[in-house]
């Protein structure tokens, strides 16, 4: 064996900073408190497992007797998602233009637009749905409005970030022909952003279908209403049928949208 180096070995790990220690201890304390608060016990887990097995045994085979109702409800969910996302994306374009550094008319408008987008994004879709159920009553309209807000919060931010990334050159070239601001945006900035905007919009449809399912749980229309009713009446075989339909619809759309995205990018 070779002789040991005359130099001392470098440490295996770096000593974390004081701040890192504080953060780690805080995290550990928070984690333990969460675990304690959830009252996790072997007894409860065992009972939960038994209940789960009972649910599964009642849910299989799924009961498709009400297939017509389930089908219409699923269609309504897809409608909510598509209509909501379409309006959401259309609203997002002007909002994103006002929020992007290179297209905003001035700093004040940009700040206001960014705050509006942030509010739309920070409030979860379920809470938007609760608010709109109060405002416009039970049914798909509340769901559509909730999806619009959720889509704007997410899509407008992505659009505006994309606008800020476009090359300056083409926009400058059109400006120097004497074109107005809107023409420059439509002629240079939108074409450059188009592929990424389409991909974002498709992704937001996927996201909206998933949220449209849960929005039904608070009465905002769609298949979630059926699911929550079936669960509450302990008709687990019907619930299983609904969950399967949702699964097929979501996976199907994800496949479709990813194949479209692959083509345009």
């Amino acid at each position: 064996m070779s002789a040991p180096s005359r130099h001392s070995l470098p440490p295996r790990m770096r000593m974390p900073s004081a701040l890192a220690w504080v953060l780690m201890v805080t995290f550990a304390a928070f984690f333990l408190q969460g675990l304690y608060g959830a009252e996790v016990s072997v007894d409860r887990l065992l009972r939960g497992a038994t209940n789960f097995v009972r649910f599964v045994s009642l849910a299989i085979p799924p009961d498709f007797a009400r297939w017509e109702t389930i089908g219409w409800a699923m269609l309504e969910t897809l409608n909510i998602a598509v209509v909501g996302v379409t309006f959401g994306c259309l609203l997002s374009i002007p909002l994103a233009l006002l929020a992007a550094r290179n297209t905003a008319p001035n700093g004040v408008i940009r700040f206001v637009a960014r705050q509006l987008i942030a509010i739309a994004r920070t409030i979860p879709d379920l809470i938007w749905a609760l608010i709109f159920v109060v405002a416009v009553g039970l049914g798909p309209l509340a769901g559509i409005l909730a999806i619009i807000m959720d889509t704007v919060g997410f899509v407008a931010r992505f659009y505006s970030e994309r606008f800020e990334e476009v090359q300056k050159g083409p926009a400058e070239a059109l400006t120097s022909t004497g074109a107005g601001r809107l023409s420059v945006i439509a002629g240079a900035i939108l074409p450059e952003s188009f592929a990424s905007m389409t991909a974002t919009s498709l992704y937001s449809v996927e996201k909206a279908i998933r949220s449209a399912v849960t929005l039904g749980l608070v009465g905002a229309g769609g298949i979630g209403v059926e699911l929550s009713t079936a669960m509450r009446l302990f008709q687990y075989d019907q619930a299983a049928a609904i969950i399967l339909v949702v699964l097929v619809a979501v996976i199907g759309f994800e496949q479709l949208s990813s194949s479209i995205r692959k083509r345009i990018i």
Binding site: Q167, P170, G178, S183, G187, A188, P191, F194, A195
Partner: peptide, 28 residues
């Protein structure tokens, strides 16, 4: 321009048409 500054997503013909953008009432 040094770097041509054409709109990359559009055809050569469309890029040339854009030269008239400033002269037309409805721009783009």
């Amino acid at each position: 321009f040094q770097h041509f500054n054409l709109v990359p997503q559009l055809s050569a013909h469309q890029n040339v048409l854009f030269g008239a953008m400033g002269q037309r009432r409805f721009g783009v």
